Amino acid sequence: MNKLGLFGAAAVATALCFPSDANADPVLNASIATAANALVTSATNTGNGGSFVTKAVKNALAWTNSQWLYCFELSTLSAAQWYEDIDAGHNFVEITNIADIDAGQIFAINATGSYTGHAAVITGEPIDITPPAGYYTPYRTGQKQWALPIADSTGSEHGQNASYPDSRRVGGVFTANIPGTAFLRIYSDEVTGEILSYGWSVTSTNEANVYDQSERPFAIGELDISACL
C-alpha cells in the first residue's frame, strides 16, 4: 500500500510541515497539549498513564482507528510502550536537553520491577526553580532544577503548593485516577543542559523520590509521524 494513500491530503499537508530537527511541528505539538488539557477540563475517564497519553494524541491527530494502528501498531500504548517508542525513535525525536523541551511532547517512564511506569503530556516550558529563582530540596551541586508542567491521569498526587499545584486536589482532598494538571521536577546539567533525572513532585524533599536513568529509565519525545505518511 502506498503510505500516502492511507492518510490522504490532510496527512500530506502535515508531513510537509516537518523539518528534520527537533521541535519539528509546533502546530502538532500545540494540538497535543490542547487535547491533553481538554481531557482534564472535560474530566474524561481515560485510564491512567499511557492510556491518557494515547487518548490525547489520538484526539490531536483526529485519525481513524486504521490510521492509528498503521502508525503505532497498538490500539493503546502503555507507559512502557510510549517510553520504548521514544527511546527507539519510533515516530519520535527524543529530547535530551532541557532547552528543547516544549508543550506537546511526551514524558514517559519505563516499567522497572513492580513499577509499571507512567506517561504524561508536557503542557508548557520548564520553569527554573534553581536558587535564586527558587529553592526546592533535594538540591544537587552542578545541576539546575525545573518545574515541568504536565497533564496526566494518575493515582498518585504530584505534590501540592500554591505555585505548583495538582489540580486533582480540591478543598484539601485529592481525587485519584482522573485527568489533571500538575508538575514534575527535572534536573539538568547546569553547563550542558543535559537532562539527568526527574522527581515525581516539585515539593517532595525526599532524595529517594528523585530518579536517574539507572534507577527508572525515562525519556522525553516529540512526535514525528512523517515515517507513517
Rank of each mutant, 00 (worst) to 15 (best):
Gly193Tyr: 03
Pro149Leu: 10
Ala108Phe: 03
Tyr211Asn: 07
Glu207His: 09
Pro19Asp: 10
Ala24Thr: 02
Glu125Trp: 10
Thr175Tyr: 04
Asn177Val: 15
Gly172Leu: 14
Thr141Tyr: 01
Asn48Ala: 09
Ile150Pro: 06
Asn91Ser: 11
Gly171Ala: 13
Ala33Thr: 13
Glu215Gly: 10
Phe52Arg: 00
Ala119Asp: 06
Asp100Tyr: 11
Trp200Met: 13
Ser78Trp: 02
Asp128Tyr: 15
Gln105Arg: 00
Thr96Met: 07
Ile109Gly: 00
Val93Asp: 10
Ala151Gly: 05
Glu157Pro: 12
Val210Thr: 09
Ser214Glu: 14
Ser201Gln: 10
Ile106Ser: 03
Ile95Thr: 01
Phe183Trp: 08
Ala208Gly: 01
Ala151Thr: 00
Ala176His: 07
Ile106Tyr: 01
Ala60Pro: 01
Ser201Ile: 10
Asp189Gly: 13
Tyr135Cys: 07
Ala60Phe: 04
Ser42Glu: 10
Tyr83Ser: 01
Asp85Val: 03
Ala119Ser: 08
Ala111Lys: 07
Ala151Asn: 01
Met1His: 11
Phe107Ser: 03
Ile150Tyr: 03
Val173Thr: 15
Leu39Phe: 00
Gly171Phe: 08
Gly199Lys: 02
Pro26Met: 10
Ala43Asp: 14
Thr116Phe: 06
Ser42Met: 03
Pro217Lys: 02
Val202Met: 07
Gln143Phe: 02
Ala219Tyr: 01
Ala33Val: 13
Gly221Tyr: 00
Asn48Arg: 10
Tyr115Thr: 05
Leu69His: 05
Ser42Asp: 13
Ala80Ile: 04
Val191Pro: 09
His90Arg: 09
Tyr135Pro: 05
Leu77Asn: 00
Gly50Cys: 08
Ala103His: 04
Thr154His: 15
Glu94His: 04
Asn29Tyr: 03
Leu16Tyr: 08
Tyr115Asn: 11
Phe52Ile: 02
Ala227Asn: 06
Glu215His: 10
Leu61Asn: 05
Arg185Lys: 15
Phe18Trp: 07
Asn45Cys: 15
Ile127Val: 15
Asn23Trp: 00
Ala108Met: 06
Leu4Met: 08
Ala38Thr: 15
Trp63Gly: 08
Ala13Cys: 09
Asn65Ile: 10
Ala162Thr: 15
Phe183Gly: 06
Ala147Ile: 11
Leu4Pro: 09
Asp100Lys: 14
